[in-house]
Nucleic acid binder design. Structure first.
Lengths: 171, 171
DNA sequence: GATTTGCGTTGCTAATTGCTACCTATCGTG
DNA sequence: CACGATAGGTAGCAATTAGCAACGCAAATC
């Protein structure tokens, strides 16, 4: 052990801070969830979430600004604005469900009465997890950081110390 | 269409707000990520994240309080405190990676130089996604909310209106 | 033309974040 | 044992963000 760990000095050069820039703000995920459930209008979000008007206004604007939702005025009633998830927004579904499943697993008194199912066979979806390229389920200990150049290479058992990142520091 | 959507009135009876109670706070995910990468000590987090001392102190306390990390004084040097992810904390890895992969996909100038790989064969892990119980990959349109009583039942093509939740409101 | 609906903005207060400086216990060293 | 260095915090204060209630305003409806 004592391999290399992920360069933490470039902590900012990582997808996580990028994602959190928008989605890390309060209410963003709840708005997203409401969007996934078919809400499209300002007052719908307002009623469903119990969020303050000005905050909702601000959050929707930011989500639109970041391309997660798109804002469109309806031609048939030009008071109404439709907020819809974009492809970029829909791509957050796995993250949202993973978070939600975690909350459901460890939270208290969470009914999980409606279950999210595969429409095809009506069975509940699988738990969101980490998979190898061939579909095997992976746990935290099965992972390691590799330099792009070393992807797919055989395990360098010794080599220099401090050569490859590790997640096994997790113990 | 016109099925039932997830009861939004019980918006709080859901795993998402539960998850966001801790993980929705600023820095929580970044601290978690640092923890995944083998950091264990206060000053390590401090240096790696560029977070203020009091905030880090507060956030670590809250993560411990919620059972995501555990705090342990080291016997050999009793100045040192070890912060370690618990099983509950490790369970957040899929959510963290999903978020991160999303940020990497849509963010600008994100190197993705170290790649997270399966230690077994050195291949990059698969994208975090939504899978059916049998492993098929599912998209947002393949999903629907079902009452627990209706799980696994054949699709009720008409039935009463407003009977089953939908995600197909996504268009 | 008056009222309601939909989507905001504005003003003000409360809570959260961030900075810098300080505090306390422990450790290694001469 | 006195000493400074190290580890992990607190305390005080400024800046940012969230939340509440009231107002604005254009388009629809009666």
């Amino acid at each position: 052990m004592g391999k290399l760990r992920e360069p933490l000095n470039d902590m900012q050069n990582c997808g996580l801070p990028a994602a959190l820039e928008v989605m890390g703000e309060r209410w963003s995920f709840m708005i997203l969830r409401a969007g996934f459930n078919g809400l499209h209008h300002f007052e719908e979000y307002l009623g469903a979430l119990g969020i303050a008007r000005n905050i909702l206004s601000n959050r929707l604007a930011r989500l639109v600004e970041h391309g997660i939702m798109k804002r469109e005025a309806l031609p048939e009633d030009r008071r109404k604005i439709e907020y819809r998830l974009t492809a970029k927004g829909l791509d957050l579904l796995p993250a949202m469900l993973a978070l939600r499943q975690w909350g459901e697993k460890y939270g208290e008194g969470i009914p999980s009465n409606p279950v999210l199912c595969d429409e095809r066979d009506g069975q509940p979806i699988a738990l969101i997890g980490i998979h190898a390229h061939d579909g095997r389920v992976l746990g935290p200990m099965d992972l390691e950081w590799r330099d792009v150049a070393d992807v797919g290479k055989a395990v360098v058992e010794d080599g220099d110390e401090e050569v490859r990142p590790q997640l096994s520091a997790l113990r």
